[in-house]
Amino acid sequence: MKKAVRKTLAPRMINPKGGFNVVRKGVSNSYWGDLYHWLLSLSWPKFLALISLGYLVVNALFALAYLAGGNGIENARPGNFLDAFFFSVQTMASIGYGAMFPKTTYAHVLVTIESLIGLMGLAVGTGLMFARFSLPKARVTFSRVAVIAPYNGIPTLMFRVANERQNWILEAQIRVTLVRNEITVEGDMMRRFYDMQLLRSQTPLFALTWTVMHPIDENSPLYGVTLENMIEDEMELVVTLTGLDETVSQIIHARHSFIAGEIFWNMRFVDILSKTREGRRTIDYSCFHDVIPIE
Rank of each mutant, 00 (worst) to 15 (best):
L9E: 14
L116M: 09
S274R: 12
V57R: 03
I216K: 10
Y97W: 13
V291T: 14
V176T: 14
V145L: 10
I259C: 05
G279R: 04
D188V: 08
A207V: 06
S249D: 13
P204A: 13
T91M: 04
W44S: 14
I259W: 06
A131Q: 15
V89F: 04
P78Y: 01
F159Q: 07
Q250C: 11
M129R: 09
S201H: 12
A138D: 02
E246W: 01
W32A: 14
I272M: 11
S28A: 14
R277I: 02
L244W: 02
F142K: 05
D284K: 14
R200N: 14
W44P: 05
L170H: 07
V5Y: 02
T8F: 02
K7G: 08
V145G: 04
F87W: 08
N29T: 09
M267L: 14
L9H: 11
R281Y: 13
H289R: 10
R281A: 14
S30K: 07
F86D: 04
K103Y: 01
L199H: 01
A254K: 11
A60Q: 00
I113M: 07
L170N: 06
G26N: 08
G127Y: 15
P150C: 08
L227M: 12
M100T: 03
R24T: 09
L42A: 09
D195I: 10
H214F: 01
A123L: 07
W44T: 15
G121Y: 04
I154C: 12
L241T: 03
Y55S: 05
A93N: 10
